[in-house]
């Protein structure tokens, strides 16, 4: 046991300095004003109608992005995971590759593509950009989890009288739920806090919750930004807890 704890030590230090300490500092900013007075003012400002609307709108965009990523990503991941369909195995790399490129670069590239396609920047462009950036994060866990499904399982369903469609919805989808859950975590949670994508693709017209946080920190309203970040963190934690036992 002693040995094991030696190995754990660097991680513990890492956790304290890079995770716990920033959280404490952030919490401190959120509940104390510039004079060092304790106040709930900043946290409560969340109920401000404009902020609340932005928040709800951001959750909406995140949900839309997540659902579109599932709808687009699932068929790709499924087809590529079934070896018997005969697609080359490395084809999956093309769908996952964009993950390795910085999101800002992806988005700049997309702006150019949208221009060529005559799609105006705005809310539609925003959703396209979100899906474009986050799709690989959905495809990867879905693909991994679908690959683990033994094709005998699907054949057993046929053998017991299931059609292809029934076998897909009664066996493949339920068995791949862990993959769907990790995909949702990988997409939904980060989309809540994005700001650069929305700024670039809507020419700053649409404000997401992440943009508000970024803006307030950028304009010396640290306490305010910290309070909003705490709220965002709560959403992420709640999502995580809700999804965890699936």
């Amino acid at each position: 046991m002693r040995r094991l704890s030696t190995f754990v030590a660097p991680y513990a230090i890492f956790m304290v300095i890079l995770v716990i300490l920033p959280l404490v500092i952030m919490a401190q900013y959120a509940v104390f004003d510039k004079e060092g007075q304790f106040t709930l003012h900043f946290l409560l400002s969340f109920t401000n109608e404009e902020i609340l609307n932005t928040f709800i709108y951001s959750i909406g965009v995140a949900m839309e992005t997540t659902i579109l990523c599932i709808l687009l990503g699932y068929p790709i991941a499924y087809i590529l995971s079934r070896k018997e369909m005969g697609f080359p195995a490395h084809l999956i790399t093309f769908f996952i590759l964009p993950m390795g490129v910085n999101m800002l670069l992806n988005t700049f590239a997309l702006v150019a593509v949208l221009d060529v396609l005559h799609i105006p920047l705005g809310t539609t462009a925003l959703v396209i950009g979100m899906v474009y950036n986050f799709l690989p994060f959905m495809v990867q866990p879905l693909y991994n989890s679908l690959c683990k499904i033994d094709s005998n399982l699907i054949e057993a369903a046929y053998d017991l009288g299931a059609s292809k469609i029934t076998a897909f919805f009664k066996i493949v989808v339920p068995v791949s739920i862990p993959g769907i859950v990790s995909g949702v975590m990988m997409v939904f949670m980060p989309t809540i806090s994005t700001f650069a994508i929305s700024e670039l693709l809507t020419m700053n017209k649409v404000k997401l919750f992440g943009s508000v946080v970024q803006a307030s920190i950028g304009s010396d309203m640290l306490n305010y930004g910290a309070a909003l970040s705490i709220v965002m963190l709560l959403v992420v934690v709640i999502t995580q807890v809700l999804l965890k036992d699936r």
Binding site: D150, N152, L153, E155, A156, A157, L160, G161, P174, V175
Partner: peptide, 30 residues
């Protein structure tokens, strides 16, 4: 004739039980 229409059932080599269903639900599937 596709597998699902044949009056034939298979016990698979590695059983291929549905992991998300319990014993009763597995047997009830067909």
């Amino acid at each position: 004739m596709p597998a699902e229409k044949r009056p034939i059932n298979t016990v698979f080599q590695h059983y291929a039980l549905f992991p998300h269903l319990n014993v009763y639900e597995n047997i009830a599937f067909g």
